[in-house]
Design a protein around this nucleic acid. Structure first.
Lengths: 155, 155
DNA sequence: TTTTTGGTTCTCTATTTGCAGAACCAAAAA
DNA sequence: TTTTTGGTTCTGCAAATAGAGAACCAAAAA
């Protein structure tokens, strides 16, 4: 097996990106996600990944399946080749972004619930809370506009 | 000691908010942060917090100090009273938001580093990566504008 | 001067997380 | 039909996390 190799810069970037991705992924999965952005070769097999990152088979298997269900990666196959070739699902980032903003909306809803059950007696606080809620709603409204504006600017 | 009490709705909201806050805080701290938004009484003492949430002294102490250093809460004192009264630092949310968007910028910088070291041979991928980076930069530029727009709209 | 209050810090333990290693398995190749 | 490949699943452990409980402590009160 042709073991793929990474230069110092790439190793450094995997570490940095890995750290960023760990917010939301377990370490092994985070480093795989990073690898698939950084590596010269973009489509890597199970064993190539497992080998450069020094992971066990189980860790590799679990991390890959996790990344697949999260839609962070995908794989292709080649005719006459049993292996799967995993690659970063870069085309899906727009959806991922939208989802992120969506969950923002959930927070907002809960905050509204909080506000609606507060006693009148804490009016000062309630007003600040309301201001915060309004701000989040404002953002929720404006960010889709920004998405569109960006689509426009590309043409 | 007057033990403060919460109704069912409030308990439910603390659980919900707590779950939201756990993304970034440990459970005990998350529930304290939630409590200080939900409780009728807004300024609670160490022992009141400790009691309604059923926490040990150590857990309470550590969580409160954590929330204080994160600027999520603050405390006031009352003349002739040794206790501190902890309350949600709701006025600081704008800063917190800005910080959140700032860290977005750090991700962007790392992504630029990734792009700049990619081989020409993967042009297709590189272009998609660049598009993603451009989008993030676009957002980084436009979001402060949104902040201003909102400030304006309040007047 | 002793006691109480409002915490803080230390020690210890239960739980969770993250992964290794080995056993296992189905499809393809030999 | 047996062997190999490309994984998956199971078992078990080491380390990290989260918090309990007790000991501790400084300032204020008695």
């Amino acid at each position: 097996m042709e073991t793929i190799k990474l230069n110092a810069k790439q190793l450094d970037l995997i570490e940095k990106l890995g750290l960023i991705f760990e917010q939301g992924l377990q370490p092994a999965a985070a480093r795989i996600a990073a690898l698939l952005l950084v590596s010269d070769k973009l489509e890597l097999t199970f064993d190539e990944i497992r080998e450069v990152l020094n992971l066990s088979k189980s860790a590799t298997s679990n991390a890959l399946n996790m990344l697949l269900t999260l839609n962070r990666i995908e794989y292709i196959t080649k005719p006459g080749d049993r292996k799967r070739y995993f690659k970063s699902n870069l085309s899906d980032w727009k959806e991922t972004m939208k989802d992120k903003f969506m969950e923002f909306e959930k927070v907002n809803k809960t905050m509204r619930e909080v506000l609606s059950q507060r006693p009148h007696s804490t009016n000062d606080f309630n007003l600040k809370l309301e201001e915060f809620i309004h701000f989040m709603e404002f953002m929720n409204q404006e960010i889709p506009v920004l998405f569109k504006k960006w689509e426009q600017s590309k043409k």
